[in-house]
Design a protein around this nucleic acid. Structure first.
Lengths: 205, 205
DNA sequence: GTCTATATAATGATAGAC
DNA sequence: GTCTATCATTATATAGAC
């Protein structure tokens, strides 16, 4: 709604529409990007009229920002819901890499989200930064702390090494899936995982 | 260059227009993306009329594809023009990483190109594949061969390791520059280079 | 080959009925 | 709050003059 008042009891009717609009917006923006998505299509996908969309969101840009922030929060929950990082590095790092890789590969929504954020990162730098701050940064910090907690790994810069780990995985999904390179330069994901764990673990020896 | 046709007069004028159109298209598409770029703006940026644009390119999609293919070729030249990979791994890998990283960081056109290709990789999968085949694949192959040529590195899977190297560098530029994360999670590029060379070199010991 | 002018369609956003 | 109907603008693409 346009002006929420303090202490106002939410009308569930209205909240439902907002949710439907965000659902429709997600479908359209993720499929076609920002500029190629029309408010008519959003309204149609949401099952409401266009005027209703404009009664809940100021304009196209406002709707887009609200959607991206919602999706970033959702991803944040999904990723931080992974298993706690503790135990033998060989086990933990392999499981971490395998889990993260397959979560990205098996999730078309994640891939569309990446396309959208990167594609619009010039027009909406603040939204890309929300993604960085709420997803990439905590992920790197978590891994960095784990690496630092295992002195037997003998890694002088845990944070930089965490970036190498994450960067390798994300870029693998970027080339193979998001940019459709898996038929042009195929590689089993296990080979990447093996090579990564080899680099990180065997360095200590 | 252009194929000379019998009886054609004034062909250099026409070729000039094509070049001007592609220049204008580059400026607009790189700045605003595919959908948000109008043929009017392309014509204006190129200094020609819109009808002239349509006389040389079938439609917006055709112009876009021609531009991306041209840019991919240009990048291909630019990247393969790097120094030959031979010599001591510590020297070669550090120089490679440093050069590649700064070429990407100091090149806004590259960053816009990445935004464009990834953002449009759902609508134009073939164009993303051209990029993969003409840039990412040869780069990985070159590094892979170098790694394989140095058995003292003791790396069991050179190709997967080459992907880790490239992936770390590209993803670093992706988060820091393209997605504007350098103020949110800052890191000196030298730290990444140090950590990478540490992982790859010290593993052999 | 290149231009000006225009046809046709779609877009973001709003007015007013209920 | 939600809808239908509509406005003003802008888009892709083309016709016809020179």
């Amino acid at each position: 709604m346009a002006r929420p008042k303090i202490g106002e009891t939410d009308r569930s009717n209205s909240t439902d529409k907002v949710e439907k609009i965000l659902q429709g917006a997600m479908q359209e923006f993720l499929a076609h990007g920002y500029a190629a998505t029309s408010m008519d299509k959003v309204a149609e996908a949401a099952g409401v009229s266009k005027a209703t969309v404009y009664s809940h969101f100021q304009d196209k840009e406002g709707l887009f920002k609200a959607l991206i922030e919602k999706l970033a929060k959702k991803r944040f929950q999904k990723i931080l819901g992974t298993q706690a990082l503790q135990g033998e590095p060989y086990i933990v790092l392999r499981r971490l890499a395998k889990t993260a890789l397959h979560q990205m590969i098996d999730d078309p929504e994640y891939q569309s989200f990446e396309r959208l954020l990167i594609g619009e990162s010039a027009r909406f730098p603040g939204l890309a930064q929300i993604f960085i701050g709420s997803i990439a940064k905590p992920a790197i910090e978590t891994i960095s702390k784990y690496i630092a907690s295992r002195p037997e790994l003998n890694i002088p810069d845990p944070e930089a090494t965490a970036r190498i780990l994450i960067g390798s995985l994300v870029h693998f999904v970027m080339t193979q899936e998001i940019m459709h390179g898996k038929n042009i330069m195929p590689m089993e994901s296990d080979r990447l995982i093996d090579a990564l764990t080899h680099l990180i673990i065997n360095c200590a020896e």
